[in-house]
Design a protein around this nucleic acid. Structure first.
Length: 480
RNA sequence: GGCGGCUUGGCCAAGUGGUAAGGCAGCGGCCUGCAAAGCCGUUAUUCUCCGGUUCGAAUCCGGAAGCCGCCUCCA
């Protein structure tokens, strides 16, 4: 079965056929780096990371470009507020962004171009548009794209430019010829950062950088363009206008847009003050928890971030890691080939159906259940025949994890990290105390003094510590 | 006003014509000194409602209700 992708442009799932055989060129709109990144950015980045990994898994030679918008009004505003220059601001937040995405085990794209490093390309692009009479410059003022000159305007967002004229909310800019014409080059006001251009000192408009940079790295036409749903209009619509006006050929073959992250069923917004920042989420949850959560729903639907959901994800993730540890200890062959297994086939089918990660996760859990059952039935003592089955399941889960950028560490490290986080949360400074109590309990159990043993268990339970007696060993972990 | 989307068990969530995946929680059981973990069983004759098409619909068509997003910077 071949890969199918839901294309925003046609509103349908379509078979994916790249322009060039075995090659995929993908451009995703990255952040405007004027502030700390929030969980919504994380969703977009994680989803396109999985898409990137899946395309590579399908043996495509993928060129994945994700830009940084590092000059814009908000950055300038922030610079003025903090007394720094805009470059300092953008560099700071690019660094933060990279740190957080690394923590989330997200791969770096092939190329991460910045707008400020492509000013010449942007100017060239605008000049081409002016030459083709798709854009105009009014002396002493900004350069605009002329909507009138591009008949297909609105084809991605299914919007009629005339409807927008009717909207009274578009503020009238005297220098524009028509409502809806948008800025390609914006003149600098005193004190603002600027670059020289044929139209005076200024900076690029928001949309032009993506047209110019995607052209530079991917060409006049490319396969996939992605971003958050909100970018469909006006950003992506304007990109189409610019690029297709310039080159008179189809700009992008497949448009992919991800849905939003809500917070407790509300939209993240400034007025509600409910922005959830990635760095804060990383303080509270293991990166795998965040990713498993973000991938637990189909990428086009909205997903609701709340504590309850996160706790559910933790329970599930613990279960997966526990199975990995259990099957590894039972002697699973971690290098076995699983390409022909039912689980892998199911997973491939799910991913090829418009990157259905939610279904892919279900496959992982099915494998866990199947494996635990086998281990139970054999009391973890496996004959070579059964061991093969367990190895397959183990390997499948790890392989799926690889596509999702999950389960990268050993179960031991995972559970240790969890313990450390728990100790911190419970403000337990002397973890040795826990071991001492467990030792005392083991002694009591040996002499069949179960009352003492149970009292100790209760004592630990009050610290949210749950004991687990396995054979002659007692281990512990924190509950949720 | 224009455009788009959503409504599946207590909660989360797959499922786009063939008779309801998966997770979490609950309950009963196996296991255990007791637990925890794991496993087994159990919880939607039914998918917001009303019509229609069909041998057959959660899935297609029409209508209603509720919720949400975009149309202004936004992942």
């Amino acid at each position: 079965m071949n890969l199918k992708i839901y294309n925003t442009f046609t509103g349908k799932k379509e078979e994916f056929i790249p322009i060039e055989k075995k090659k995929v060129k993908m451009y995703v709109c990255g952040p405007t780096v004027y502030d700390t990144s929030h969980i919504g950015h994380a969703r977009s980045v994680v989803i396109f990371d999985v898409i990137f990994r899946w395309l590579k898994h399908l043996n495509y030679d993928v060129c994945y470009v994700r830009n940084f918008t590092d000059i814009d009004d908000k950055i300038i505003k922030k610079a003025n507020q903090t007394g720094k220059d805009s470059l300092e601001i953008s560099q700071k937040f690019i660094k933060e962004f990279h740190n957080e995405m690394d923590a989330l085990n997200v791969l770096r794209p092939s190329i991460e171009p910045k707008a400020t490093e492509h000013i010449q390309e942007i100017i060239d692009f605008i000049q081409l548009l002016i030459k083709k009479e798709k854009a105009y410059h009014i002396k002493g003022k900004d350069v605009f794209f002329s909507l009138e000159s591009f008949k297909d305007y609105g084809k991605l967002s299914k919007r009629n430019p005339d409807d927008m004229k009717a909207g009274a909310r578009i503020c009238v800019n005297d220098s524009k010829k028509n409502h809806g014409d948008f800025v390609l080059w914006k003149l600098a006001k005193p004190g603002e950062p600027f670059w020289k251009s044929p139209w005076g000192n200024g900076r690029p408009g928001w949309h032009i950088e993506c047209s110019a940079m995607s052209y530079k790295y991917l060409g006049k036409s490319f396969d996939i363009h992605g971003g958050g749903k909100d970018l469909i209009f006006p950003h992506h619509e304007n990109e189409i206008a610019q690029s297709e006006a310039a080159f008179t050929q189809t700009f992008v073959k497949y448009w992919i847009h991800n849905g939003f992250v809500d917070i407790n069923n509300e939209k993240m917004s400034k007025s509600l003050g409910n922005f959830i920042m990635i760095k804060d989420v990383l303080k509270n949850y293991h990166p795998d928890v965040i990713k498993l959560f973000l991938l637990s729903k189909h990428y086009r639907s909205p997903i609701d971030y709340n504590e309850n959901s996160m706790n559910e994800v933790i329970s599930g993730l613990d279960k997966i890691y526990a199975f990995l540890a259990r099957s590894y200890n039972a002697g699973a062959d971690i290098n076995i080939n699983t390409d022909l297994s039912v689980e892998w086939e199911k997973f491939v089918k799910a991913m090829n159906d418009d990157f259905n990660s939610a279904k892919g996760i279900a496959v992982m859990f099915e494998a866990v259940k199947k494996g635990n059952k086998i281990l139970d039935e054999n009391k973890d003592n496996l004959s070579s025949n059964v061991l093969k089955d367990i190895s397959m399941l183990y390997r499948n889960i790890k392989k799926i994890g690889k596509i999702f950028g999950l389960l990268d560490q050993s179960p031991e490290d995972y559970f240790n990290a969890k313990k450390q986080a728990g100790l911190k949360k419970q403000s337990i400074d002397e973890p040795e105390k826990i071991d001492m109590l467990i030792k005392a309990r083991t002694k009591a159990r040996k002499s069949k003094d179960f009352e003492t043993a149970d009292n100790i268990r209760k004592q630990l339970q009050d610290m949210n510590i749950i004991l687990k007696d396995e054979n002659d060993k007692t281990t512990w972990e924190f509950g949720h």
